[in-house]
């Protein structure tokens, strides 16, 4: 019995030391709280409102600029995307299903691998697979309205008519 007590005391002591170390001797770091559940954005009433929402999504929630920026070289730049898109869908290498620039942008957001800009594919896939996630996925989680808004933002920036969404249809979603 005395052996048992000794061994038990020894084991408890070891556990105690580890606990003390992990609990007391390293700084108490509180991990970040989970981000709040995002609500689906209401559809703005006007094309301008849609474009403004798009800009917010592009620079904020969508986290697009994490990759689409001039320094990382991780993703193609999106300035003048409307013009580029119109050229690309007419180009010989295009395999996607988009008919116009707006469809092209939507396709790139929800099915990025449909067409990969040369040089930006996942390494070893010969530009057949895009490293970009589907923007509707939970990590980004854009709603239909927000996808439309981003397209509207590009169209407004390019100075062309906003063709997406039906602002007159009023607020959508919850």
């Amino acid at each position: 019995m005395s052996n048992f007590l000794k061994v038990a005391a020894f084991s408890l002591f070891i556990i105690g030391v580890y606990t003390f170390f992990a609990d007391r001797l390293i700084p108490p770091i509180a991990p970040q709280a989970p981000p709040p559940l995002t609500e689906v954005a209401a559809r703005p009433m006007t094309a301008d409102g849609l474009a403004r929402l798009g800009e917010e999504v592009f620079k904020g929630k969508g986290a697009c600029t994490l990759c689409h920026n001039p320094v990382g070289g991780r993703a193609p730049l999106l300035d003048g995307i409307i013009i580029k898109a119109n050229e690309r869908i007419k180009g010989p290498g295009y395999r996607g299903g988009a008919k116009d620039a707006a469809e092209y942008i939507r396709e790139s957001m929800v099915n990025p691998s449909a067409y990969v800009v040369p040089g930006f594919g996942v390494a070893g896939t010969h530009d057949t697979k895009s490293p970009m996630p589907d923007v509707r996925g939970s990590e980004i989680g854009l709603s239909e309205v927000e996808i439309d808004a981003v397209i509207a933002y590009f169209q407004r920036s390019a100075g062309v008519e906003v063709t997406v969404g039906s602002p007159a249809a009023g607020p959508e979603g919850k």
Binding site: A22, I26, P28, I29, P31, Q32, P34, L37, G137, S138
Partner: peptide, 26 residues
């Protein structure tokens, strides 16, 4: 973190937060 299935199914329970190392050690 706050996922049941990472990036697919979110943990919406009150316990979704990550506890501290000290708590885990205890």
């Amino acid at each position: 973190q706050h996922w049941h299935v990472y990036s697919v199914m979110r943990d919406a329970s009150p316990d979704a937060f990550t506890p501290t190392i000290g708590y885990a050690a205890r």
